[in-house]
């Protein structure tokens, strides 16, 4: 053992450093995985609510959609829910990046897979009308949501 090694080990002892326990890393890994899975689930919920808002509730009739598609989509689009969907897909990706091997895949692929899983789950929730249930709860049983709900209606195209 040369002087440098002795200095490092002496420093370790002086600072009272001990190796972090194995459960610390296991817990950290599971926190990231849990957050990733939750993000995917919440993203899927956001997508199912967006689907309900656009097509079933304040949505646009097919006739109006054909006549002025851009305006219809923009005014009817559940912007907030789509932003939430994107945010949670990003959150899931960032969590997965912290895990052992996901960094080996290209960003586009990872984000694509995460978005794909979220959309598939969202489609399943849409089929069970889950979006409607969430939207009803938020508009009837909470007051905070009302301000956010105005967002889509207030957006006006410049043309």
């Amino acid at each position: 053992m040369d002087d440098f090694s002795k200095d490092v080990i002496s420093e370790i002892r002086d600072r009272g450093i001990t190796p972090r326990p194995f459960w610390y890393f296991l817990l950290r890994k599971w926190v990231f995985w849990t957050f990733a899975i939750l993000s995917i689930f919440v993203g899927a919920i956001a997508l199912s609510v967006a689907d309900y808002v656009f097509f079933d509730n304040e949505g646009v009739s097919p006739a109006v959609l054909i006549e002025s598609p851009l305006e219809s989509i923009f005014q009817g689009a559940p912007i907030v829910w789509l932003i939430l969907f994107a945010l949670f897909v990003a959150g899931a990706y960032l969590s997965l990046k912290k895990t052992q091997t996901v960094y080996r895949f290209k960003t586009v692929k990872t984000v694509g897979v995460v978005a794909g899983i979220t959309v598939l789950l969202g489609l399943g929730l849409m089929a069970s009308d889950f979006g409607h249930a969430i939207y009803y709860y938020l508009t009837h049983d909470t007051s905070l949501f009302e301000a956010v709900r105005q967002t889509s209606d207030d957006i006006v195209l410049p043309f």
Partner: peptide, 22 residues
């Protein structure tokens, strides 16, 4: 360089249980 090297080895020691043979 010496300081950074020392800190790196201390971090290695701290995270020894995180090393996986894969």
């Amino acid at each position: 360089t010496k300081d950074l090297l020392q800190e790196s080895f201390i971090k290695v020691y701290l995270n020894l249980n995180d090393y996986k043979p894969s």
